[in-house]
Design a protein around this nucleic acid. Structure first.
Lengths: 226, 226
DNA sequence: TTTTCTGATGAAGATTTTTTAAAGTTTTTA
DNA sequence: TAAAAACTTTAAAAAATCTTCATCAGAAAA
């Protein structure tokens, strides 16, 4: 349970992130412009701040700089393609990490986790990064999947899909939610893409893909892991 | 008891929503075009506004924008399929949520509840989503139903039906009301469809479907849960 | 008690959703 | 830059669900 501040002027993004991070049992505040962000950061003691570069009133870099004057809270910047990352990450502004829009939520969560771990323990935690369910093992750190200790070769999308579903065992995700989380919140493509990836994932991890034991279909709703 | 404004030029929808929301002990105003909506919103202090995108005189997006100039009241937009949600939800118009027509009333109520909760408490309430009556348990969040802790697989309609009845224990719903709430206010089909779904629901949750202990028939009127 | 309704039940057909297969596109790798 | 791998789209087949209809049983009314 971390306290997180999300700052972006696009309500849809804020809403999506808030929802997604709260799913993982965090407390999330939202700010929609630079002034608000600074005010929030002063009043609260966040574990991490996620900050868009483009903001009304005071732009993200400026906000980052101002927050740094009174706090060392980790900051992840959200940037558009083509911005000068070295500058953002450099001494002048002091962000801890950045993500290029459109990003996918899993990636963001991975970065958050990595930063918090770096901050709190100073060393990577090798447990807790491995999820095991019956004969299926998923290593989030190494991005590897095993069945009966034998490695299964998954593609990026297949892995992200399985990781998301496994990390939220039992939760039913609609295709739209999966597209949003795995493909990025503004992915314009067809939802059927999800079906095809689920199918290939099943072919790789299920003994009998048509009677799955891990990735289930909730008819009319979506998919879930159990 | 909330003050709600419903804006739509289709009288049937307005009427249905008004009825349904008043059932839950809310005060509901109705407006039938954009100008009216703005006038009402100015004069009254609503807790939430439900606003159709397609409106005569001033369209819904415009209305939304104009209301935003003087108020932060939460707004739920009703849209047809295929409209640009990002735009609607984005900064430009600032709706708080949207629903695609035809929607079902349960869904709308859930959204209203979620928004009001977010506004008033600042955080979503993760508990209180589970209804338990004797050995029957219904999880509205996960959309799962259990009998004696054993999961029962319900279809979408069966679940929606049970959820509505359970949430209003004791209240007798006519078939027409059930069609309106579960199938959508503009569902054109036969009311007998309800019977068939009730029957199949009973087959799944009742020990003896012909002597039900949960879903009862009120002869000549409709069905209720107890 | 008989008649007339209303609700329950079973089953067929229609519809919707998912799975499967295959071809086309894009990205990565060698 | 060509080949391979990964991803996306499309179409069909298959499966699950929903709707309708016909019939039967039981409740209410005459």
């Amino acid at each position: 349970m971390y306290k997180i501040l999300v700052v972006d002027d696009e309500k849809l993004i804020v809403k999506g992130l808030k929802f997604s991070l709260e799913q993982d049992n965090n407390f999330v505040d939202a700010a929609y412009d630079g002034e608000e962000a600074i005010a929030f950061a002063k009043q609260n003691n966040y574990d991490i701040i996620i900050l868009d570069v483009m903001l009304p009133k005071a732009d993200g870099l400026e906000v980052c700089q101002q927050i740094r004057e009174f706090s060392n809270v980790p900051i992840i910047m959200l940037t558009a393609k083509g911005e000068d990352m070295d500058k953002i990450m450099g001494l002048e502004y002091g962000a801890d990490d950045y993500l290029t829009k459109p990003f996918n939520v899993i990636e963001l969560k991975a970065r958050i986790k990595a930063i918090l771990r770096r901050i709190t323990t100073g060393a990577p935690n090798l447990l807790e990064s491995i999820l095991t369910v019956r004969e299926l093992k998923l290593d989030t750190e190494k991005r590897r999947v095993y069945i009966h200790e034998k490695e299964v070769d998954l593609t990026i999308k297949e892995f992200d899909l399985l990781e998301l579903l496994m990390m939220n065992e039992g939760k039913v995700y609609s295709r739209e939610e999966l597209l949003g989380s795995v493909w990025g919140y503004d992915y314009p493509g067809d939802v059927r893409t999800v079906d095809v990836h689920v199918r290939r994932l099943r072919e790789k991890i299920e003994q009998s893909p048509s009677e799955p034991k891990f990735v289930f279909t909730k008819w009319g709703v979506g998919y879930y892991f159990r």
